[in-house]
Design a protein around this nucleic acid. Structure first.
Length: 414
RNA sequence: GUGGGUGUAGCUCAGCUGGUUAGAGCGUCAGAUUGUGAUUCUGAAUGUCGCGGGUUCGAAUCCCGUCACUCACCCCA
């Protein structure tokens, strides 16, 4: 058991071998896919002014009101660790004026939310996300969903499902909220107290409630799209049609909503069966974010890396499969050989060979044991006898065979 | 923020209703094998029993508190 004093703080953890190997696979393949879709990487600060998040995510959202790590710096400025990546990315995009007008960016990095940890939820977690800036265009939405599905496939993930919905254009918002309230009002008394409060503060959120009583009522009311303008409906239809042409499977779910205020039009999430209660491994949508006097339109998504890893592991994919190739191991016998082998080690490394050696004159047996543990396929043994002859013993660890070669031959073998 | 479960060796865990010096497997290290690993055999090391307090002649075991892990609610990736 680790001692209390030097443990990471609650909900945050070290990522080390062998786990780190699957993280690197995910990041490497993500960069390859993003390059094909022509998205460029940005790295924004983890710490931002608090207002950036309150303005863009909405100052009544749960994320902002109860989940942010907020602190004051020495000048009394209120700062927050980013709880998500879109706000910072859009701040960057907005700062660039015309230069970044149609920006297509991706980011990957840690996000912070001070919630109670559980399966699939850490206080420091990692997201890979993209933002495609530009006026609402259903083809752009479909393209971003296609990118996301492509990414999941590139990681080898199977069994993920995309659920899609629209929350309508901003102009429809009032009609949607009113329509929903009217539909639910006659049965308000059937709802638990907490849900009745949501009815007032945020009716939309009732739609995806897990409460059975709420679900029973929701099942009988018309889908939100019924309250929207023809334009909003047409927008959703074009997204669906386009995805069909691209042969991307999605399920339209009239009850899907999102928790952040900036969403408009298309919203979606990716769910996976191998995850436990937090079954969404990614979320996305179209948004309009207001910063100072300007509004930035765009569409984007964020993928939870920890959740992707959990889903991959549920499917039998393990981090160890992505471990680096084992080294060539050098075994020395005697002090003279030890010092000569140090030069051999360096020379091989400079030629691009991953290799390792025992830096003390331990018994051969012990050195061989260690070589075996590194997973080395090839072991070079050189003692005083070989030094005199100018040779190297090369041993194949798989079948135990070995032969004695000179330097040019050795280099050719590795 | 609310509720359930769990904290014993590096890891996985045993330790019955409180009773001497706290155990096993795996791993580690060493020897068998003075120039050869993985197999086999033999041996060894390692614990503030999460932390603090209480009850008791006596606590890993019972009680309280606390911290951490874990799962769920809320919400989200």
């Amino acid at each position: 058991m680790a001692t209390n004093a030097f443990q990471p703080i609650q909900g945050m953890s070290d990522i080390a071998p062998p786990d780190i190997y699957i993280w690197r696979m995910i990041e490497e393949r993500a960069r390859e896919v993003f390059a094909r879709y022509r998205f460029d990487e940005i790295r924004t600060p983890a710490l931002e002014k608090n207002e950036l998040f309150t303005h863009s995510l909405g100052d009544t959202t749960d994320v902002v009101t109860k989940e942010m790590y907020t602190l004051e710096d020495r000048g009394g400025r209120k700062l927050s660790l980013r709880p998500e990546g879109t706000a910072g990315a859009i701040r960057y995009v907005a700062s660039g004026g015309e230069e970044t007008a149609g920006a297509r960016v991706f980011y990957m990095g840690p996000m912070f939310r001070c919630e109670r940890p559980q399966a699939g939820r850490k206080r420091q977690f990692h997201q890979i996300g993209v933002e495609a800036v530009g006026a609402p265009n259903p083809l752009a939405d479909a393209e971003v969903i296609a990118l996301q599905v492509h990414l999941l496939a590139a990681w080898g993930l199977k069994g993920a499902k995309v659920r899609l919905n629209t929350i309508g254009m901003p102009e429809d918002r009032t009609a949607v909220l009113e329509g929903l309230r009217e539909a639910i009002r006659p049965r308000l008394s059937e709802l638990p107290e907490e849900a009745q409060q949501r009815f007032e503060t945020n009716v939309l959120r009732l739609l995806d409630s897990k409460d059975e009583a709420v679900q029973k009522v929701i099942a009988d009311i018309p889908p939100v799209i019924e309250f929207m303008s023809a334009e909003s409906r047409a927008y959703l239809n074009t997204v669906i049609e386009t995805l069909k042409k691209l042969e991307i499977d999605v399920t339209v779910d009239a009850r899907l909503v999102r928790g952040l205020d900036y969403y408009v039009h298309t919203v979606w999430e990716v769910v996976h069966g191998g995850l436990g209660a937090q079954n969404a491994l990614a979320g996305g949508g179209r948004y309009r974010i207001h910063l100072d006097k300007r509004a930035v339109d765009g569409v984007g998504f964020a993928i939870g890396v920890e959740r992707v890893i959990a889903a991959l592991e549920a499917g039998g994919i393990t981090a160890a499969q992505f471990a680096p190739i084992p080294p060539v191991f050098i075994v020395s016998l005697g002090d003279a050989a030890l010092s000569e082998n140090l030069m051999l080690l360096q020379m091989l490394r400079q030629r691009g060979v991953a290799c390792e050696m025992e830096l003390s004159a331990r018994k051969v047996q012990a050195q061989m044991r260690r070589a075996d543990k590194t997973g080395a396929q090839t072991v070079i043994i050189r003692g005083d006898t070989e030094l005199e002859k100018g040779t190297f013993v090369v041993k194949n660890m798989a079948d135990g065979s070995q032969r004695e070669v000179e330097l040019p031959e050795l280099i050719k073998l590795l």
